[in-house]
Simulated assay, not measured.
Amino acid sequence: MTRPWEADPEAPFARRLGKTAKELGETKGRNGCPEIWQLGNGDVAVIGRDLTAAYAQRLPEGVTIAPDERLVVISGRMLGSAKPDIADA
Rank of each mutant, 00 (worst) to 15 (best):
Q38K: 12
M1I: 13
R30S: 03
E10Q: 11
V44A: 05
L59T: 02
T27V: 06
G48M: 00
E10L: 13
L17C: 00
A14I: 11
F13S: 06
F13W: 04
D50W: 00
P9M: 08
I47N: 09
L71G: 03
P12L: 14
E23A: 15
T64N: 09
V72W: 15
P60M: 10
V44S: 04
N41W: 05
E26R: 13
P67L: 08
S81Q: 05
N41Q: 04
A82Q: 02
V44Y: 06
V72I: 07
G62A: 15
D68W: 14
P9V: 08
Q57K: 11
L71H: 06
L17Y: 03
A56C: 08
S75K: 12
D85M: 07
P9Q: 05
L24Y: 02
R30H: 04
D85Q: 04
L59C: 09
R15L: 07
A54Q: 04
P4E: 11
E35M: 07
A21C: 08
A11M: 07
P34D: 15
R3V: 14
F13D: 09
P67F: 10
A82M: 01
K28A: 15
L24A: 13
D85W: 06
A89W: 06
V46M: 08
L71T: 00
N41D: 15
T2Q: 12
G29A: 10
R70N: 01
G40V: 05
T52N: 08
L17V: 07
